[in-house]
């Protein structure tokens, strides 16, 4: 077999749907996982809250905890007015979280290891900030780039820095998630190939394969942490950016 650590990121076409000027909109494994993630989130949360009990059971506690966790995050970052974005942040967190964690299961596809997916989500966040900011505050939204209390001769530079930092947000937001997911999965795959390669080399190789095998165990634990942490970071940064849309003044 060939050592190919990026085969796992290959988008495989399942059903050919339509081609519009060379761009394919086929149903692929990525599409299947996206729909599966949405279905898993919705079914779990619905099933967990089916009893609507006063004293929650284990699954209902998980549903309530995720609700209160994101609600607190949004309220702390963007205030009570920012709670209009609670469904958005909740959906983003759950989507990224479940996508990251499902991607850790062997033979699955990690949709968040594709830059186009993370970039789309990041642009959705920044787009929401810009659209809601102008809709709510009009031209006053541009005060976001003009911090108060800055000496006038420094102001052009500060505004330039603010604009650049604002524009870099979608890039850093999407690249952070993408790079973490991609790198982690490649590393896992590389060590897995080491195990297979060494073990096929004979008795001595079996002993040699032990080290990368334990490395995989350790890396899987680390990747689980990264998967959860990146979903959390994505949600926190989203709430912080959305705060600018709600309160543009510094």
């Amino acid at each position: 077999m060939t050592i190919d650590p990026i085969h796992q990121f290959e988008v495989q076409r399942y059903v050919e749907l339509l081609h519009i000027s060379g761009v394919s909109f086929s149903f692929t494994n990525a599409s299947a996982f996206m729909i599966g993630i949405v279905g898993a989130i919705f079914l779990f949360l619905t099933y967990a809250t089916r009893g609507r009990t006063l004293v929650p059971g284990r699954m209902q506690s998980v549903a309530e905890m995720s609700y209160e966790f994101i609600a607190k995050m949004v309220r702390d970052s963007a205030g009570t007015q920012g709670m209009v974005f609670f469904p958005l942040v909740f959906s983003l967190f759950m989507f990224v979280f479940v996508a990251n964690v499902i991607g850790l299961v062997p033979y699955t596809f990690t949709i968040t290891a594709h830059i186009v997916v993370t970039a789309a989500l990041a642009l959705l966040v920044i787009g929401t900030v810009v659209v809601y900011g102008f809709y709510k505050h009009g031209m006053h939204f541009l005060h976001l780039f003009v911090p108060s209390g800055v000496p006038s001769f420094l102001l052009p530079f500060v505004v330039l820095i603010e604009v650049v930092s604002f524009l870099s947000r979608p890039i850093s937001l999407s690249l952070r998630l993408f790079a973490n997911m991609l790198a982690g999965h490649i590393a896992l795959k590389v060590f897995a190939f080491f195990v297979v390669g060494l073990a096929s080399a004979g008795i001595a190789g079996w002993f040699g394969a032990v080290l990368p095998f334990f490395m995989i165990v350790a890396l899987t634990a680390l990747e689980l942490l990264v998967a959860i942490l990146q979903a959390y970071v994505f949600a926190v940064l989203t709430s912080i950016y959305l705060n600018d849309a709600v309160h543009p003044g510094h």
Binding site: S24, T28, S31, M34, F42, P87, F95, H114, V117
Partner: peptide, 17 residues
């Protein structure tokens, strides 16, 4: 693959939202 991914992401994330 971008077209397909964006379409299905929009559809699935829209449904999730």
């Amino acid at each position: 693959t971008f077209g397909s991914q964006l379409l299905w992401l929009a559809a699935s994330f829209g449904a999730l939202y």
